[in-house]
C-alpha cells in the first residue's frame, strides 16, 4: 500500500542517504575537486530533505546559494590555486583522533537534543502565501537586519579588495 506518508518516508531515507554519501565522499576523497563534487551531492540531499519537510523557500535558497554560489566558489578557488588541482592531498593529520572525538561529542549532544525535544508542528501552508510574507517581513520587521547585511557585504567587499590588490 503506497500511502503518501510511506512515500514521504522513502523520499526522506533516499535523500538522507544521498546527503550522507556525499558528505562521506567529501571528507574521504583525496582529490580536492572530487571532494568538492561530493560536497555538492551532500548539499543536494539536504535541499531535498528541506522539500520533504515543506520548507520550500529554504530548499530553493539551499540550491541557489550552496550549490549555485558556494560550490562554484570552492571549485574556482581549487582550480585557481596552483598545485591543488592535481595533487592528492592527505585527508588526515595527527589531530584526527581529537577531531573525531569532538565531532562525536557534538553529534551525541545534538542527537540527544533531537530525540528529547518536543518539536512543535508547523501549521500547514502553501508556498504561494509564504513567499509574500517573507518579502513583507524583510522590509518591515526585519528591515534593520536587512540593511545591516548590506553594510556587512560592503565591508566584506572593501576588505577583499584591500587584501587582494597588488
Amino acid at each position: 500500500m503506497l500511502t503518501s506518508q510511506f512515500l514521504t518516508y522513502v523520499a526522506f531515507f533516499v535523500l538522507s542517504a544521498i546527503a550522507l554519501i556525499g558528505a562521506f565522499l567529501a571528507v574521504t576523497l583525496r582529490n580536492l575537486v572530487r571532494a568538492a563534487l561530493g560536497l555538492i551531492l551532500s548539499f543536494m540531499g539536504v535541499a531535498g530533505i528541506y522539500f520533504v519537510l515543506e520548507a520550500e523557500f529554504v530548499a530553493i535558497v539551499q540550491v541557489i546559494i550552496y550549490i549555485g554560489a558556494i560550490s562554484v566558489l570552492i571549485l574556482f578557488a581549487i582550480m585557481l590555486t596552483r598545485g591543488l588541482m592535481t595533487s592528492a592531498a592527505s585527508t588526515q593529520n595527527s589531530q584526527w583522533i581529537g577531531a573525531a572525538f569532538v565531532g562525536m561529542l557534538m553529534f551525541a549532544v545534538l542527537f540527544f537534543v533531537a530525540i528529547t525535544t518536543n518539536w512543535p508542528l508547523a501549521q500547514p501552508h502553501t508556498i504561494s502565501d509564504l513567499i509574500p510574507r517573507l518579502g513583507a517581513d524583510l522590509v518591515t520587521t526585519y528591515l534593520l537586519p536587512f540593511e545591516a547585511v548590506s553594510l556587512l557585504l560592503l565591508a566584506a567587499l572593501i576588505g577583499a579588495i584591500v587584501i587582494a590588490r597588488e
Binding site: 526585519y142 534593520l144 537586519p145 545591516a148 556587512l152 565591508a155 576588505g159 584591500v162 587584501i163
Partner: peptide
C-alpha cells in the same frame, strides 16, 4: 558593527553586529 551589537535587542541583530565588527578586523 560594535555600536549595533551593543544596542541590539535581537539575537539576529547581535549576530550581524558581531560579523560587521569582526570582518573589518580580520582585514
Amino acid at each position: 558593527g560594535m555600536i549595533v551589537m551593543a544596542t541590539a535587542t535581537d539575537l539576529i541583530v547581535i549576530f550581524l553586529g558581531l560579523e560587521l565588527l569582526s570582518l573589518p578586523l580580520y582585514i
